[in-house]
Design a protein around this nucleic acid. Structure first.
Length: 431
DNA sequence: TCTGGGGTCCTAGGACCC
DNA sequence: TCTGGGGTCCTAGGACCC
C-alpha cells in the first residue's frame, strides 16, 4: 500500500514511472553578481535585500559558500552579517592576494538587483523549456521538468548532465539537479549534494533514499513542525514513514497525512506549468518601529500605489484588499475586505487600506504591507482559451467610479459585480 | 535567529443559505 | 419553538517556501 506505483488498473496514467528533474541554480543572486563582476570569483559575496551600498540595513538574500563559511546565513540581518564578516575594501581585484596573506577575512556586499537577475534567469529558463515539454517554474532560480517523453531511466543521469552542461556553457552558472520519479523526491535530491550536484533516485529507491534523512530535509517541514516531531520522538524520515497516517492526522490534520505519504515516497502531483498569480503584495519595513500614524499611512499609500501598478500591468482585477501590520516584537496582524465584484481601482485601494489601517492608529509599527487577492484576469493577449469568442465586455475605464469606494464594501450594489461576471467565469476556466 | 520581501496553502470560526 | 445537516463565503492567523 505504501509503495504501489504499478498496480494494474489503478493509476490513471500508464504505468510508466515519470522522470522528473528539479533544477536549482546555486547561490543564484551571488552567482549573478559574479557574472558581471568576475573579480568576485572565489571571494565571499553577500547579496542583501533592502540593503544599499555602504549601509547596514536589510537582510541577507543570498550568501556565497565562501561567505557561509563565516556564519552568514540567508535571512540574517545585514548588521549581524557585518559583525561576522566585515566589508572588504573595494574594488575586489585590489585585494587579490589577501587570502594568501592571512589577513582578516572580509566580504563583498551587494544590493539585490532583481531586474538583472531576472534577465539571467530567463536565459536559463529558455534552456529548460528547450529540454522538456513541461516545465514548472517555481521561482527565479528553480524549476521542475517532466522529461518522461525526452529520456528513459537507464540514461536519465546523462540527460540531466546534459542540462547542467548547457546551463554552464551558455549562461556560465552551475545548477544542482535532482532526478526522481516524483516531484518531492526530485526536490530533495537536488538539495542533497549542492552546489553543482547531480543526484539520481531511481523509481525503486525513493523510500530508502529518504529514510536516513532528518525530518526537516523534507520539503514542507519547517522549524515548527520539525520541533514538534522531535518532541514526539520522530527524528528521521524513515521514522516518520513508519507512523500510521491517522495518528498524525489528529495532531497535524491533512498536512500530517501528506507528510507521512511524502516520507514513504508517495507523491501523486504531476508537473504543471504555473498558472496566474493568486495574490499580489508589497510590503516594507521601517528602520525602527514607527509610532507616527501619519508616516505609516504615507508608507501604506506608496505600497498601495506600487501594488495597483503591478496589478494593472498584469491585467489583474482584484476583489479583496488587505493590509498587514507588524507590531513589536514581531506580531503579524492582517485585515482585509472583499468587494462585491472585481475592480482595478487604485483610488479605492488607497481608501480601503487607509480604513483598514485606522484600527492600528495607536500602534507602533515595524512593517506594513498591502495585498490584493481574489484576482481575476481580463482576457488578455496571453490567454490561450479559444472557448471565449466574445471580446472582453468592458475595458479598464469602465471600472466603477472611485467615489463608490466607501460604500463598495457594505452595499452589494449591482453594477460592479454584474459588469465583471465574465471575468470571473473565465478565471474558472484556468483551474 | 530580535527579523526583508513576495508568494502559496491550510485551518477554524462565524454568517448565511437551503 | 426547537432543532438537523450540508454547503459556501468571508476573515484572521499560521506554517512554509524561495
Amino acid at each position: 500500500m505504501d509503495r504501489g506505483p504499478t498496480l494494474p488498473g489503478v493509476g490513471d496514467e500508464d504505468d510508466e514511472d515519470a522522470i522528473i528533474l528539479h533544477v536549482d541554480l546555486d547561490c543564484f543572486y551571488a552567482a549573478c553578481e559574479r557574472l558581471r563582476e568576475p573579480a568576485l570569483d572565489g571571494e565571499p559575496v553577500v547579496v542583501g535585500m533592502g540593503y544599499e551600498a555602504g549601509q547596514t540595513n536589510g537582510a541577507v538574500a543570498t550568501a556565497s559558500y565562501e561567505a557561509r563559511e563565516h556564519g552568514i546565513e540567508s535571512a540574517q540581518a545585514i548588521t549581524t552579517a557585518l559583525e561576522r564578516l566585515p566589508r572588504a575594501t573595494e574594488p575586489p581585484d585590489a585585494s587579490a592576494d589577501r587570502g594568501a596573506s592571512g589577513e582578516e577575512p572580509a566580504g563583498y556586499y551587494r544590493p539585490v538587483d532583481m531586474e538583472y537577475y531576472e534577465s539571467v534567469g530567463a536565459e536559463v529558463k529558455a534552456i529548460l523549456h528547450d529540454c522538456a515539454d513541461v516545465v514548472r517554474e517555481v521561482s527565479i532560480d528553480e524549476a521542475y521538468l517532466d522529461v518522461t517523453e525526452q529520456t528513459a531511466w537507464p540514461v536519465a543521469e546523462g540527460f540531466a548532465r546534459h542540462v547542467k552542461q548547457r546551463i554552464e556553457r551558455d549562461v556560465r552558472l552551475t545548477a544542482s539537479i535532482g532526478v526522481a520519479p516524483t516531484m518531492h523526491a526530485a526536490k530533495v535530491a537536488s538539495d542533497h549534494d549542492k552546489p553543482d550536484g547531480l543526484v539520481v533516485v531511481e523509481p525503486g529507491d525513493v523510500r530508502s533514499f529518504l529514510a536516513p534523512l532528518s525530518v526537516e530535509e523534507l520539503h514542507g517541514i519547517g522549524p515548527v513542525t520539525a520541533r514538534e516531531l522531535r518532541a514526539d520522538g520522530v527524528e528521521t524520515v524513515g521514522e516518520l514513514a513508519e507512523l500510521e497516517p491517522t495518528e498524525l492526522a489528529d495532531e497535524y490534520g491533512q498536512r500530517g497525512m501528506e507528510l507521512v505519504a511524502r516520507a514513504r515516497g508517495i507523491d501523486d502531483r504531476t508537473v504543471e506549468p504555473r498558472g496566474r498569480p493568486k495574490s499580489l503584495s508589497r510590503e516594507s519595513a521601517f528602520d525602527e518601529p514607527e509610532d507616527d500614524h501619519q508616516a505609516v499611512t504615507t508608507r501604506v499609500r506608496m505600497l498601495a500605489d506600487a501594488v495597483t501598478d503591478r496589478a494593472t500591468s498584469k491585467d489583474a482585477l482584484y476583489r479583496t484588499i488587505g493590509v498587514k501590520v507588524v507590531t513589536p516584537p514581531f506580531d503579524i496582524n492582517t485585515r482585509e475586505r472583499s468587494l462585491p465584484g472585481p475592480v482595478d481601482d487604485p483610488d479605492l485601494v488607497e481608501e480601503v487600506t487607509a480604513e483598514l489601517l485606522s484600527e492600528f492608529e495607536d500602534a507602533r509599527v515595524r512593517k506594513v504591507g498591502v495585498r490584493l487577492s481574489n484576482l481575476s484576469f481580463e482576457e488578455g493577449d496571453q490567454a490561450t482559451l479559444d472557448s471565449w469568442d466574445e471580446p472582453p465586455a468592458e475595458s479598464e475605464d469602465q471600472k466603477p467610479d472611485s467615489n463608490h469606494g466607501r460604500s463598495a464594501g457594505d452595499q452589494s450594489t449591482s453594477e460592479t459585480s454584474s459588469s465583471t461576471v465574465e471575468g470571473q467565469a473565465s478565471l474558472s476556466e484556468f483551474e
